[in-house]
Design a protein around this nucleic acid. Structure first.
Length: 226
DNA sequence: CCAGACGTTGTT
DNA sequence: GTCTGG
DNA sequence: CCAGACGTTGTT
DNA sequence: GTCTGG
């Protein structure tokens, strides 16, 4: 699955990498994006901009927005049919720019806290998570809450050493295909494990465990004691 | 008919 | 909103 | 995902 | 143990 990620590039690099109309004004590099925090999202539609949405999808019919914290991921195999995700799958798909993500693993033969690992592309360049977004209108006249979720799929051979799920990663043509595709079969064809050969992983400090710590120390390599 | 769920992951 | 269970 | 709380009444 | 908050 995917419960933390990074997007460490600056606003100009982001604009270039994702072909945005403009560089997002409030952008800052992030080393530890956690659920319920605001994330930059590129949604379907004619305009190619980054908008801020809460990570953790709140279904439009929800009574209470707190359910969103449990919907940080959606299974790619079933998202098109689940009540919470169905509408978004049809018409509210999005890209969530990232350049790495974390997974936690219980080291064999050890007890205690799990060890975090950082995953990224070998070429170090950014990519997008395949996502869904939703709009939730609170009672009264307050601003609607925009929220999003990250799709997951079976792991590739690299991720399988750590977890039984991985986020759906998109690069190049697949990004436009996800945003603007119109057939369910065509969309689902994009929701497959990203090639392991293009990815790399290393252990990082447990500082990343704390959602409030958002510094480059989160992606510093550490040795795992045997 | 109404009531109640609607989700994912891993299990320190 | 829409589906399932009672 | 992990960390941290987990409760009520009434009010200086 | 389980739920909420970040």
């Amino acid at each position: 699955m995917c419960g933390r990620f990074t997007i460490t590039i600056d606003a100009d690099s982001l604009q270039m990498a994702f072909d945005l109309e403009s560089a997002p004004p409030d952008w800052k590099p992030r080393y530890n994006v956690a659920p319920t925090q605001m994330v930059g999202v590129i949604r379907e539609g004619p305009r190619r901009l980054v908008e801020w949405m809460r990570w953790g999808l709140v279904p439009f019919w929800a009574k209470d927005p707190s359910v969103g914290s449990q919907l940080i991921n959606a299974r790619a195999e079933t998202a098109a049919e689940k009540p919470s995700f169905r509408r978004a799958f049809q018409a509210q798909r999005c890209l969530i720019p990232a350049d790495g993500f974390f997974e936690w693993k219980q080291e064999v033969g050890q007890k205690g806290p799990r060890q975090p690992y950082y995953f990224r592309m070998r070429d170090g360049r950014p990519f997008a998570f395949a996502g869904l977004w939703e709009r939730w209108q609170p009672e009264g006249a307050a601003e609607p809450l925009l929220s999003c979720t990250i799709l997951t799929c079976a792991p590739n051979t690299l991720l399988a050493q750590y977890h039984n799920r991985m986020p759906v990663l998109l690069r190049g043509e697949a990004m436009g295909g996800w945003l603007h595709g119109d057939s369910r079969a065509g969309l689902e064809a994009l929701l497959r494990p990203y090639p392991a050969e293009e990815m790399t992983a290393y252990a990082v400090s447990r500082l990343v465990n704390r959602a409030g710590v958002d510094t480059a120390e989160c992606i510093q390599k550490v040795e795992v004691s045997a």
